[in-house]
Design a protein around this nucleic acid. Structure first.
Length: 344
DNA sequence: TGAATTTGACCCTC
DNA sequence: GAGGGTCAAATTCA
């Protein structure tokens, strides 16, 4: 129950933040979609847990609360979208593109995007089905059984530029292995978060091209990003640059902690063709070669410039938006998570 | 010099 | 023992 409440509160917190930053997201349907997806996942997950622990009056109450919360968020977003024709146009355009281009296993992105326009109709559908968070284990890290597949998506290769690489996903990854896989034509690449050592970020991903469709990548995310959590974010950040951008066809279906996703989002809408293209074979192609499937362009010649969290923080906490009816939820949720952090 | 990728070897699970 | 995941030395490059 503790966990469920924690989930709900965090969902409320993100919803509050979304509400505050809605005007800023008018021209960034990707980010809006991601935000909605994350909130949806949280409430969906909480709802699932409530359903699985039915019986007490408390869980029944929570279930009703979750359903209501879902509807309210959907309504708010829908109203905003309808009042913002520009955003509607952009999102609808993006949706059309997504339908044609993105084959997301489980349909997460497309489904959530549609939910955004249609009033979160499919919100509940995105839940624990894609989330298989492994039970915490103190056992040896290599145990396959405990590696908890967080999410698996298929990503189309870029049509422009180097089609050998999948689109970026907003994070910086470092390749630590590649292996030929049985019954697969193409090797599987193993990546871990660039900040693994620095911030003990456990996030990893595997990238493999599909046998029957070499222009499509299957990306499996494991672990959760902790590197961009505000509490652990580096205190000495480089100045914000204009090079913080998730590409238009960015498909972020990771299920890392919500805060991580939020903080990993990028509020700069303009970066054209700046993908990590140029995967060139050869040993030791080294840094900056772009020889990194899915690596964010945040890596530039070995220096991390990927701190979209700064932009987001500015947007979020300096927005100066007035208080709202959701503030009490927002505040309590934040306190809740802060205290949780202190526990951990 | 430091950070990146490559790749063979090792470890672990099934 | 097979197959997959990770390690770490070697190598590359700005």
């Amino acid at each position: 129950m503790e966990e469920i409440i924690s989930l709900i509160l965090h969902g409320c917190m993100l919803a509050g933040k979304l509400k505050e930053t809605l005007p800023n997201l008018a021209t960034q349907p990707d980010l809006l979609s991601n935000s909605l997806e994350e909130i949806t996942k949280i409430f969906g997950s909480a709802k699932e847990r409530v359903l699985h622990s039915q019986g007490s009056s408390t869980t029944s109450y929570l279930h009703n609360l979750l359903t209501l919360e879902h509807q309210q968020i959907g309504t708010s977003v829908e109203q905003w979208l309808r009042s913002n024709t520009q955003a509607m146009d952009i999102i609808q355009t993006q949706l059309a593109a997504d339908r044609n281009e993105a084959k997301v296993s489980g349909g997460v992105d497309v489904r959530v995007s549609e939910a955004a326009v249609g009033g979160f109709q499919a919100a509940a559908a995105v839940s624990a089905s894609n989330v298989n968070i492994a039970s915490s284990s103190t056992q040896r890290p290599r145990r396959r059984k405990d590696q908890g597949v967080i999410n698996k998506i298929t990503v189309p290769a870029p049509r422009i530029g180097n089609t050998e690489i999948p689109p970026e996903d907003g994070f910086t990854w470092r390749k630590y292995g590649q292996k030929e896989i049985m019954n697969s034509k193409f090797p599987r690449g193993y990546y871990r978060c660039t900040h693994q050592k620095l911030y003990n970020c456990p996030a990893k991903k595997q990238v493999q091209r599909l046998d029957n469709d070499p222009l499509t990548f299957e990306v499996m995310y494991r672990g959760e990003h902790t590197c961009h959590m505000s509490a652990t974010a580096p205190s000495t950040l480089p100045p914000p640059t204009a090079d913080h951008q998730i590409p238009q066809d960015h498909l972020s279906a990771t299920t890392e902690p919500p805060t991580s996703l939020w903080l990993s989002m990028d509020f700069n809408p303009i970066r054209q063709g700046g993908s990590s293209s140029g995967m060139i074979g050869g040993r030791g192609s080294g840094r900056g070669s772009g020889d990194d499937v899915g690596t964010s362009t945040g890596t530039r010649y070995g220096k991390e410039v990927d701190f979209p969290v700064m932009d987001l923080a500015d947007t979020m906490f300096n927005s100066g938006s007035s208080s709202s009816s959701m503030d009490f939820i927002f505040n309590s949720a934040e306190h809740r998570w802060e205290s949780d952090d202190k526990k951990n």
